[in-house]
Write a protein that binds this DNA or RNA. Structure first.
Lengths: 213, 213
DNA sequence: CATTGTGAACTCATTCACAGCG
DNA sequence: CGCTGTGAATGAGTTCACAATG
């Protein structure tokens, strides 16, 4: 592997997208793929694909292309998804439940191993996937016991910051935040926000300007 | 309003985030806010806030800052969210249902006015919000009848492209796509993808590189 | 006189163009 | 010969620094 120059954030996002397309290509029976084809599928420039991969090594064969299976493996290693990750979901409302039931996540290695809420009526109940909903107050020791490394916030906005603080105190250094509230965390903790309204706002802006930015 | 130079995509995203913080500031009783404070709340650089707003006009008062209420109004106009938008949701599984029940969306003006599925067992049923689930085959005329301008894809990945095609044929030019499959649409149609696994992959990458990119 | 608005400087990201190589 | 890998060129986006001003 080569010297790690600074990798653009967007490269990581694209690697994840490449990976998904490689899965589909494999499913369709392809053994090799060129940067041009992969780029077309992912709606980017072929040079972009090669440059993105180039940050991490030389995975292709000149004159031929990339091995579909091998490249999957390489990207899994880069993204560190060549193993399972344990997640805790907080806020077992519609969204939290929907998140836990996603087929996708589990076989990609993202295991929802704990569910939390603060509503006494929910605590103790069992989710469709067989998880007993726990009191948010127990987050600390459950995280420790079950080796949870990623926290998911699917609570109402008003509870989001509090839950984030709990995660931080429990040494969970990665948070997927579905609440529309930006949460404040120390530098050691990474946050990815998924805010539906932001994405809808982008669509309305574009619609109104009749332009695909 | 000033000459429209090219507006960065990221500016639009941030405007949406500024807007959200302005709502919170208003709720907390603030009347004015400086670019410095707003920037801190949104975790960006103060110059960034001023530059972003500068693309669209002069909304502040030198020496004082921005009027919290007025700036909300200005951003709503820019994002074209100073009116309601009708949405159609396809795929009434866990995620589709969760999406429709979000408080947030409705009072921000995003109205889910139609729900579609292809499962005969679901068609005809009523959602908690009182919508009768329609057959996906009726999408075309329902879109027309109800003035739907934004389509939401919450179907399984295998159905995503087909539904996207239906939306495009029905002249829906904006799609919010929750499926992990990249959909192909003509240029006239805007797509925003919300892919949970991509965001989780970013988190695992960062965790593994022990660095907040 | 504190804070905005903005050209200029800078940093980061993408694309080009071609050398390198199976 | 075809496609990858990559330095160099271009382009986009962010931050600086300060003039403008209510």
């Amino acid at each position: 592997m080569k010297k790690t120059t600074k990798v653009p954030k967007a490269t990581i996002t694209r690697l994840s997208i490449y990976y998904r397309q490689l899965e589909l290509l494999e499913f369709d029976g392809y053994r090799m793929v060129s940067s041009e084809k992969l780029a077309w599928l992912c709606q980017v420039n072929p040079a972009q694909v090669r440059k993105d991969l180039g940050y991490f090594g030389e995975f292709g064969v000149r004159g031929v292309g990339y091995d579909v299976i091998d490249l999957q493996g390489q990207i899994k290693k880069i993204l560190a998804v060549n193993r399972d990750w344990n997640l805790a979901v907080t806020g077992i409302g519609n969204l939290g439940s929907a998140f836990m039931e996603r087929q996708n996540l589990s076989w990609r290695g993202f295991k929802c191993v704990a569910a939390f809420d603060n509503d006494p009526r929910k605590i103790g109940q069992t989710t469709p996937s067989g998880l007993k909903i726990k009191d948010i107050k127990d987050l600390d020791w459950v995280v420790d016991e079950l080796d949870i490394e990623i926290g998911v916030i699917a609570t109402p906005p008003s509870a989001a910051q509090g839950v984030a603080d709990l995660f931080v105190d429990s040494r969970v250094n990665a948070i997927l935040n579905f609440s529309p509230t930006r949460i404040q965390v120390p530098d050691c903790c990474m946050v990815e926000n998924i805010d539906f309204t932001v994405r809808l706002d982008i669509l309305t802006y574009k619609l109104n300007h009749e332009i695909g930015i």
